[in-house]
Design a protein around this nucleic acid. Structure first.
Lengths: 169, 169
DNA sequence: TCGCGTAGTTACGCGCGTGTTATAAGGCTA
DNA sequence: TAGCCTTATAACACGCGCGTAACTACGCGA
């Protein structure tokens, strides 16, 4: 049993279930240095990668970018921008422009960027990412009791309207 | 000589020069029904496709989406949205969300969409598109005099900061 | 009508990003 | 420590979105 999630980290298949991606994607992204596990990398067959909670957020950002039709080159720029910034992600918007990537806090900055005439802007509301990751963790993690077998079947698109659970103390 | 541009339309290689794409892309997009010429389609080898000015705008939107890292599936949604709307494109923003595509006039609507928590938004400022297409036409079209040989070498990224020439009477 | 330039057609191949399957090897329980 | 289960690795293949090149055929001028 031994959850080994909230303190030790998240292993490959767990990450796939939480983020909503395939293991092939997670493996490919780790091999191509898009997102390698920050707690423990793989050291041969049989070993296990260990992802942190922050890794889950970045992976979810990548998945949302792919769902929006973007390629992994843009996803790489997104994670680079996320790594360069602090950890006040829950209220920010990640903006990918042709001239660079920015983290904005208010909508006014986005209006300014649009008026600047920089071309196409790809905007990721990070509050959604935090909320969906937290919801998936709560839904999939064995909390401590013996009721871990009754996990919701599909938590891919929760459709919850902006419920900020903040369930990560 | 016979310009045959502003009244008859634009042929394949001309379109590639104006929009900034390769002929292979233009051909592939026409064959896959992404954007077929609205004036005259190809009827076998040796014939010629004829694109309208509106086609140039939509092609430029596609190119900007590709430059932003999006795939042709999103570009298809973009042109579908552009065809369903009127022709007041110069002041609008094309917004591609995971739940649908919208044409917005003010930046306020984009703020509302971000607050709605719909996920990633891809925004195309259409004023840029109109301006760059017009500039490329002026730069590449033989205006009437014999000075058409002195065309600027590369007009791919003009870098002009929001110069709204509106040179299309 | 002949010839040539121009433009569309066809075939082959590539890189990206991933699905599928089989294989190998560590990790955890007994 | 024996054993199985889990997890990473490897090889192969596929569709997308083109590049490249050869081929074909219209169109226009002489």
């Amino acid at each position: 049993m031994t959850p080994a999630n909230l303190e030790t980290g998240y292993r490959g298949p767990q990450v796939c279930a939480i983020v909503g991606i395939t293991y092939r994607q997670l493996d490919y992204w780790a091999r191509t240095d898009l997102l390698r596990p920050s707690l423990a990398d793989a050291r041969g067959s049989g070993t296990q990668r260990l992802y942190s909670y922050r890794d889950l957020l970045e992976l979810k950002v990548i998945k949302q970018l792919l769902d929006a039709g973007l390629n992994l080159r843009e996803a790489r720029r997104a994670v680079d921008c996320l790594r360069r910034s602090g950890d006040d992600l829950a209220t920010a918007n990640l903006v990918l422009g042709v001239a660079g990537t920015v983290l904005t806090q208010s909508g006014e900055e986005i209006i300014d960027l649009l008026r600047g005439g920089q071309g196409v802007l790809n905007i990721v509301p990070l509050a959604n990412v935090v909320g969906e990751i937290d919801a998936a963790i709560v839904a999939l993690a064995p909390v401590d009791g013996p009721l871990e077998a009754s996990a919701p079947p599909v938590v891919d698109e929760p459709l919850t309207p902006l419920r900020r659970a903040a369930g990560r103390g």
